[in-house]
């Protein structure tokens, strides 16, 4: 038995230790790894009616992955441009949402982290309470704000600033606002946690040595907050790329999110293997992208946990 396990059992006792260990293993293996492996297995099999599953036609194949790239066999185009375009657009949009969120949340997190007093707690509560409302209701609330006869259009047209209502939905503004808003806390809190521990004297020392405010952030605060920033960005990117409710409710008719394609394959087309292949591609691409970014910005895996 490795020493860390021995120490773990010594500290918690055998009974409690086994219970905790069992629950953790059940959680990671039973609820995460096995279902994902089963999805991976699905993605390499043909879509067969139930009687034929396990029959001679049930063999491993790359058909489902080929479909994403080349489209249906004998189709009119060489590549599956429709789905591929949705795939890349989703990734680019998730990157944009992440950057937008970072720009929005860094000042808030900095303010919360460096100010003292009870009003900070009130601000934090005001940020958290809206998240008691479920995601779908929040998305519909944004629809009410951004819709053609929504609050913003009524206001601006009524004031005579715009002649005709602006279509926030078709222009994806509602979608970006919705996605940005959905994950704002996951960006603010990791950055806030790190910045809160930054010694105020460091900021004053930089200022005393002649640094203007942007330089203080660039050289002192941001390098210090890097673990929090990378943790927040990773979460926001992963969750935006995998979001379903916001694109479904706030997305324009022409702007499908890749998760919506996956959803269609599972539910509308009843093609689980195809849906699983799409999901695997999205997951693996996102992980590779995040790892590449971590490499680029010299972030350690341990920092993500902060």
């Amino acid at each position: 038995m490795p020493s860390f396990l021995k120490e773990f059992f010594n500290r918690n006792g055998t009974g409690m230790g086994l219970t905790i260990l069992g629950l953790v293993l059940f959680w990671t293996i039973g609820l995460i790894i096995l279902p994902q492996l089963s999805m991976l297995d699905f993605s390499f099999r043909p879509n067969l009616p139930p009687p034929e599953i396990g029959g001679p036609k049930d063999v491993y194949t790359l058909e489902n992955y080929k479909y994403l790239i080349y489209g249906p066999e004998g189709g009119s185009q060489d590549y599956n441009t429709v789905d591929l375009r949705v795939f890349f657009r989703t990734l680019v949009a998730a990157v944009c949402v992440t950057i937008f969120n970072l720009i929005l949340c860094y000042p808030i997190a900095y303010y919360l982290g460096q100010s003292k007093g009870s009003h900070i707690r009130i601000f934090a509560i005001m940020l958290i309470i809206p998240y008691w409302i479920n995601e779908i209701l929040r998305a519909f609330a944004l629809r009410i704000i951004f819709g053609e006869t929504g609050v913003l259009n009524t206001l601006f047209v009524g004031l005579g600033i715009w002649d005709t209502p602006f279509d926030f939905i078709r222009n994806d503004i509602a979608l970006y606002a919705g996605l940005g808003y959905a994950y704002i806390l996951l960006m603010i809190f990791p950055i806030y946690n790190v910045i809160e521990s930054l010694d105020r004297n460091q900021i004053e020392a930089a200022r005393d040595l002649g640094a203007p405010w942007w330089r203080i952030h660039w050289r002192v605060v941001i390098p210090y907050a890097k673990p929090g920033i990378s943790s927040g960005c990773t979460m926001v990117f992963m969750l935006s790329a995998g979001a379903l409710a916001a694109p479904q409710i706030l997305g324009g008719p022409s702007s499908l999110w890749f998760t919506q394609l996956i959803y269609q394959q599972f539910n509308d087309n009843n093609d689980w293997p195809q849906g699983a292949a799409y999901a695997v591609v999205l997951l693996v691409t996102c992980i590779l992208f995040v790892l590449a970014m971590m490499r680029l910005f010299k972030v350690n895996m341990g920092d993500i946990g902060k």
Binding site: N201, Q202, E204, V220
Partner: peptide, 11 residues
């Protein structure tokens, strides 16, 4: 002026 802080505040 340049200030030396009580806790030094080195970066």
């Amino acid at each position: 002026t340049a200030l030396i802080f009580q806790n030094l505040a080195l970066f």
